Computed example of a mutant assay.
Amino acid sequence: MAMTDLSKEQRAEFEAAAFRRLVEHLRERGDVQNIDLMNLAGFCRNCLSNWYRDAAEASGISMTKDESREIIYGMPYEEWRARHQKDATAEQQVAFERNRPKE
């Protein structure tokens, strides 16, 4: 089936399901650090939360950074950090600076 064979509603439904699965996967993989995601893929959980907030605001729904992060992390961001975040190694920091997205 070609992408053009999907209805707009089907495409949105499948995209939403894939997004939910990605978010659930990232919640289950607290061992994977955001800096590793950034260094390998160029995005992290915080990026996803920003994109989520951007989409909400584009639809006229106001959302804070803390609200969008809680949606992605499944808990308040500070709680996630306390449970899962480790200090970045010097090697991770160098890779991040080398690969940092241009804003």
Rank of each mutant, 00 (worst) to 15 (best):
Y73T: 01
V94F: 08
C44G: 13
E15Q: 13
P101A: 11
F14G: 05
E13W: 03
L26M: 13
R69S: 06
A95I: 08
Y73Q: 04
N34S: 12
L6G: 02
E28F: 01
A41E: 05
M75N: 00
S68L: 00
S49F: 02
V23C: 02
E79S: 10
D5R: 07
A56P: 01
R21F: 10
E79G: 01
Y52A: 13
T89V: 03
Y73V: 01
Q93T: 11
A90W: 07
R20V: 09
S68D: 03
E79D: 14
R21C: 07
F19Q: 14
G74T: 05
I71D: 09
L26A: 07
G60E: 05
I35L: 04
H84W: 10
Y52M: 11
M3C: 05
A90K: 14
M3S: 09
E13L: 08
R27E: 01
D54Y: 07
R83S: 01
V32L: 06
E15L: 15
A17P: 01
W51M: 15
F43R: 00
V32I: 14
A41P: 00
A55H: 02
L48Q: 02
P101E: 02
E15G: 08
W80Q: 04
E13N: 09
R100Q: 10
L6Q: 09
A18M: 10
R98Q: 09
E78K: 12
W51G: 01
Q33F: 00
C47K: 09
G30V: 07
R20L: 10
V23D: 03
R27D: 03
Q85I: 02
A41S: 08
Q93P: 00
M3K: 12
I61Y: 10
L6T: 03
D36G: 09
E91T: 05
N46T: 14
C47V: 15
K65Q: 13
F19S: 11
R20C: 10
F19R: 14
R81K: 15
M1N: 09
M75P: 00
D31N: 09
A56R: 13
M75R: 10
K86F: 00
R20E: 13
F19A: 15
E24S: 12
E79F: 02
T64V: 04
E97W: 12
D5L: 04
P101R: 11
E67P: 00
A88T: 12
R27M: 07
K86R: 13
E78V: 06
G42S: 07
N99A: 11
S7R: 07
H84E: 10
A56G: 06
N99C: 01
R53S: 06
V94R: 15
A17L: 14
I72M: 08
H25M: 12
R29C: 07
Y77M: 01
C47Q: 07
G60L: 03
D31K: 04
E13F: 09
S62H: 13
N50R: 15
R29Q: 13
R20Y: 05
S7F: 04
Y73E: 03
E24R: 14
R45Y: 02
G30R: 07
T4V: 13
E13T: 13
L6M: 12
V23Y: 02
Q33E: 05
D5H: 06
D66M: 02
T64M: 08
Q93E: 15
C44R: 00
A17S: 11
R53K: 15
R69F: 02
